[in-house]
Design a protein around this nucleic acid. Structure first.
Lengths: 358, 358
DNA sequence: ACCGGGGGGGACTTTTTTTGACCCAATGGG
DNA sequence: CCCATTGGGTCAAAAAAAGTCCCCCCCGGT
């Protein structure tokens, strides 16, 4: 009954989405990167300076932003608006119904689609992080162990997580050992930052991610390592990003030969060391210490997957789904692309579409 | 929680109400008086022909209207839209909160405010009629007697009442004998039309409205008259318009002397022969056959008052209110004016403001 | 059969708004 | 102290909107 209000609006005022979206994106951007200047904003949003000036004028007159020498700041009303109007924007863009369709297609517990396209607008990443952070907080209960993986998406979650105490006795651990990457995007770093925000304990796994089996066995014999491993395996909530197979292979420094093998096996998606083909089967595994896929069936109550960008669509479909424990947070671009994948393959809505070459 | 959505919209897109209202009024107009031409519409809505043309273009592109040689017709989607979006428009214009404030000020059971100003746009009358018709239908129960008065407002209710059977055994009667007016606006005529729409019985009172006491006594002795009178007195629902004292006095052909007396007594409102001062007291009564004010306290379950136009505001306040049985349907113009009356008199929100000279 | 009034659509000019491209003084961080 | 960046101002070009016609058509009454 109430979902039709937006349709009515779009019918009688078809220019509304354009106005609304433009202004919403602008205000959102201001909120995220204040103080910010006109020219910066204009180049970010891809509009002329003069146009932006008019828009800013409107927002200023409405008391949504303060314009000062030094830049443009959001007012408290502006911040409140951007938070409060998001569900509205979502339903106006059809994201609410998009969420429902994905819920049915992927058969997960919950889907959150964030407006925008991550590859075009970095703000979308933060917004995704904020959405995932909200979901994460809802999952936490006293005494739980939370495992987090690395990547920019998870880093964004840590960034956007409000700094207010979580439930009692939370312990945050990395899902796996560190990748040889920028420290900000390592699981360890993110675990620590999440724990900091939640004001909870954390334990780290200061180890390289990719190891030989002997090294692993040896390390497992260590008492301190064993302790942390037990902690990791007792995790009840898992927060992880999703990588495309190629990108992750490259990032791990895989050689040409290894990448060719992955391609031949049809790997499209990756989650903490596991490579999945389009049918959701594991085709390769980077040996390391940390959470194993098998553990997901056990204690894990919820896995929160965060990913965005059209190019991640296939990876997302490969990795997530068919698990009522899965909570998926993604951006509009990936969401629409996933829908395309399903539609182009099987109009009869079976899960697991084969990969589509782009 | 949800009432803030419109405020958000107005904040971030302050030009929205203008666009929306213009288009809503246009579409509503088309619905009510199709087929209709550009020029007619333009003069009605007070906009240039060219702008109207653009608006029509938008509505056409949205599939809300059909544009044919012969005029502009609403599509079924257009009709559905105009009906479905009305509550939205109301809350956007603040009419929903206006209704709540009037509810508190007048202490009636229910208030329905229709967007627009009756004196400027005749469509508002019809829309008011439609709203009142809906209220009326909700009041009816099997076997009830419904009394209706005369006037343009009640005539509009009869017009807009959908022609679908009402509850079983409804009987429609005029609240009073006929006024010496245009037949379309007489209580008898309206009673018959309402009954026709509801597919129910009706009984009429073919008598002049203003009579001497002897004549009344004589008529009451008549068996057939007595029957109808009993029926009228057993009415459980009453639908009536509200007149300003001056207008009604003039319409009844009162002389200068009589009108001066009414003025001196402070009469501002009129309902089927009773004149009320601003405090809601009866100051004059036109002797006639039909419903007496005293009857209202008895069997009457609901009285539906319909009135519109800024000039009716004082009359409405004088006549209606302080009765939990009262259902009020009015237009935006009258509603806002009533609020002004209360505010200008007693900020402490006591009922019954003294009359304000205009 | 035949007007004639009101219907939509097209075309043209005028006006207003929008937009792009500057420059300027001020401010704040390095 | 300096330089980069800020918001504000201005002005001309461009585009969009709006006002004003005229034309043709259809329908209905004569």
């Amino acid at each position: 009954m109430f979902g039709h209000q937006e349709d009515y609006l779009k019918l009688i005022a078809p220019e509304l989405p354009e106005i609304l979206l433009r202004r919403y994106r602008l205000l959102r951007r201001i909120c995220f990167s204040a103080p910010v200047g006109r020219r910066t904003l204009a180049s970010c949003l891809g509009v002329g300076e003069r146009v932006l000036r008019r828009e800013i004028g409107v927002l200023r007159d409405q008391g949504l932003v303060r314009v000062e020498p030094g830049g443009i700041y959001p007012s408290s009303a502006g911040r409140a608006l951007v938070a409060g109007i998001t569900p509205y924007i979502k339903s106006l863009l059809g994201l609410t119904s998009l969420e429902e369709r994905l819920l049915g297609l992927l058969k997960v517990q919950r889907v959150t689609v964030v407006p925008g396209e991550l590859e075009e607008d970095e703000v979308v990443l933060w917004e995704m992080g904020r959405a995932a952070a909200r979901v994460l907080r809802e999952c936490l209960a006293p005494g739980m162990v939370l495992a987090v993986s690395g990547g920019t998406s998870c880093a964004a979650v840590a960034d956007m997580l409000p700094a207010s105490p979580g439930p009692e006795g939370i312990t945050v651990v990395p899902a796996r050992g560190g990748l040889g990457e920028i420290v900000d995007y390592q699981a360890n770093t993110i675990a620590a930052r999440v724990a900091d925000k939640l004001q909870s304990r954390y334990r780290l796994l200061h180890l390289p991610d990719s190891l030989s089996q002997e090294a692993i066995d040896m390390l497992l014999a260590e008492k301190r390592i064993k302790e942390i491993m037990d902690l990791i395996h007792s995790a009840e909530v898992l927060l992880h990003g999703i990588g495309t197979a190629e990108e992750m292979a490259t990032r791990r420094g895989a050689g040409e030969e290894e990448r060719r093998r992955l391609r031949e096996k049809g790997a499209v998606g990756e989650v903490f060391g596991y490579f999945f083909n389009a049918s959701g089967e594991v085709v390769e595994r980077v040996p390391s210490l940390g959470l194993y896929l098998e553990d997901l069936g056990g204690r894990i109550k919820n896995t929160i997957a965060v990913a965005g960008g059209r190019k991640k669509a296939e990876a997302i479909v490969a990795v997530v789904g068919n698990h009522p424990r899965d909570l998926l947070v993604l951006d509009e671009g990936a969401a629409r692309r996933i829908l395309e994948l399903f539609e182009s393959r099987e109009p009869s809505s079976g899960r697991r579409p084969a990969p589509v070459s782009r």
